[in-house]
Design a protein around this nucleic acid. Structure first.
Lengths: 216, 216, 216, 216
DNA sequence: AATGAATGAGTGTTCATTCAT
DNA sequence: AATGAATGAACACTCATTCAT
């Protein structure tokens, strides 16, 4: 959540940067274009940001901050996780949020593919959603006196590669797919979700079953 | 398959380009660095390639060519597709090939995320694997006198977003994941595959079931 | 002498400018840094000064004004110039003053080396000390009814290149010399002065002798 | 001495840089202007030099290298240093060399005044002339079986502040002085040298006398 | 007297590409 | 097939200066 005292110009810069980075990639995007797009003087960009890179970082930080809020809010809603439906519900919440942040997600996906010191920024996203939720669920199970022998490594892997990854890829490729394969966007989304539910939840189903079996 | 008569220098250039594009992204990689890495004079690059972009294109074309061969070869092997196991087998074949081409895949993933005239290069990859196989399967069913009312759109969507996408994402993020989450690479792969089978094949199972039901 | 009514902010700006110009040179010093160092808003600098250059000019003007006072005061003290000791005394007075203005002197030395319309600012300094004193001495001699055929050109040259120049160079390089050659600052100063007296006064001695010879 | 394989362009760049740095100071000089003056493409400058700063360094290094040769050559000539005349002779040799390098000297003087990590570049110049000569002289005395109790610190200080400093200052200010004080350049040089001999050699005379006195 | 925001014109540096040999 | 030299067009970033309040 950007601080309220951010002047309008700073916001406009960040929005222009988001748009252009998403369109051309961080490296190919030009600061001049960001300035032009934001309708501000180029030098003003360096008044608010230390460097081109700093715009990227703030974009990412904002996303993480906002996602955190969404996660916490969502967790309150589905606190019990009694059914697979809760998982589906939550998935849907995340999907809506991610879709509203499609551009930054796209940038993050590109940047995650480059070699870098730290972990791919995408991992942080995963840790937020699965990590926080996972901790919550674990706590819940334990409160019910159930031992949780779910493999947390696997949970993370599963949620990331069969949950987060297909989802954000769908978000970023939806339009191109729609255009390329001549399928209308809304129909495409429904088909995707039908499959996504089957596949991604398949994993959660199995987990659930295994847990239930342990319970007996 | 690159022409066998590719001079050693051209090959070295292409390999250096692949490495550097994968590492820094196409835009951030410098022709100078490619030359240095390939241990050739910078101008020689322009003797073999029309432009920096041309290196990228040849890299992509080579990948597509080679994948095509793999696909055809694999299709001969599992021509009947009698069991889900065949699908799994084929998946494994593709995985091995993709992993051997991890760098180019990574580049293709980055490039696919940028806005461009045509479709994301990644789609071509999907069309090759699912498309060719799909056509084959359709033909097969028809030969058996079965009507195939499988939703081909959905098949494509499913194979791409729950098959290809998780797979190549696993390939490019495997090492970083291993390092970041402190899980040994081989163990990680096994866990991933266990989940991947459950989820991705879940979809194929359903399809199969639906087809079978129709058959009855 | 800066006007006593200089507001505190203006003084702080001038002091910061002096420090930074001396440290990095006028061109490399940045107005932003001056503002930061002076702990004032950057725009305030342009409230008090017409331009960056204007700070420099005021710095130089202040130095000249203050030196003028020192010169006049010193001339009153040693009005007779009867012995070489008087010259030495005066030298010492100038040295102390210059040392207290080391930073501005340093800036002036740098600026004097650049090509410019007018004469190097350093010349003005020389004219003040030698010129004023010279005029005084000339007047004195004439009052005593002595003809002064001392070569005034030579006097100026001598005083500048063997008096002023070594002196201010010693002032600006003293610390660096001390550090580089591992000689303690106070000891260095004593050694320098011993030599300086011998060499610089050597010239005045000769002059004196020549005058005396003429007198006889 | 610049390597013979330096293409003409590199030399032209260095000469243009020397001229402009001397004229406006390193910081105020523009790389664009260097390119224009050298009649080369601006980018070519970065083909031969790592940075603007690198041009400066190479200029300084070349000067030091060339001075070293002059020093060694001169030392061979006046190997005995029997009379003060030898010192004067050597001074003259250095003067001629320095004058031919007036521009680089001027730059070095400016750069020496800025705060920096290492010692002012000017010190290196001093160490070369006085240091090498000093070592030679010391050796000579010792060969004659004379103990050298000359204060080497003082010798260095004296040679720098009453020898090198007045000399290079005269070189850089000669024209401005000539113009400002309306004295013809050649006459000015003669007057300066007359005084310089008296003053600078005064110190060497004293030293010589002290040594001689010790000998007796 | 003081300031946060804004700007035009640079500033050193980079880069893909080409040329002459 | 190969290379050292050269170049035009950017490039991210800077800076002295101004404006509105």
């Amino acid at each position: 959540m950007k601080s309220k005292d951010s002047p309008k110009s700073k916001l406009k810069i960040l929005q222009a940067a988001e748009k252009l980075f998403a369109e051309k990639g961080f490296d190919a995007a030009r600061v001049d274009d960001v300035a032009e797009n934001a309708e501000v003087n180029k030098a003003l960009i360096y008044y608010y940001f230390k460097s081109k890179r700093d715009m990227l970082d703030q974009l990412f930080n904002n996303l993480v901050e906002e996602l955190l809020e969404v996660v916490h809010h969502s967790l309150e809603q589905h606190a019990n996780f009694e059914s697979v439906e809760d998982v589906a519900q939550e998935l849907s919440t995340y999907y809506d949020f991610m879709e509203s942040k499609a551009d930054t997600i796209r940038i993050m996906m590109m940047e995650s593919l480059k070699a870098s010191e730290g972990p791919p920024p995408l991992f942080k996203l995963s840790e937020l959603t699965t990590g926080e939720a996972g901790a919550e669920i674990t706590k819940m199970f334990e409160e019910r006196g159930l031992k949780v022998d779910v493999d947390m490594d696997e949970a993370l892997i599963g949620d990331f590669f069969t949950g987060m990854v297909p989802m954000i890829n769908f978000i970023v490729y939806r339009d191109a797919w729609s255009k390329h394969f001549g399928i209308e966007a809304e129909e495409l989304k429904q088909k995707f979700f039908r499959i996504f539910r089957i596949t991604h939840l398949a994993y959660h189903n199995v987990q659930q079953e295994e847990v239930v079996r342990d319970e007996e």
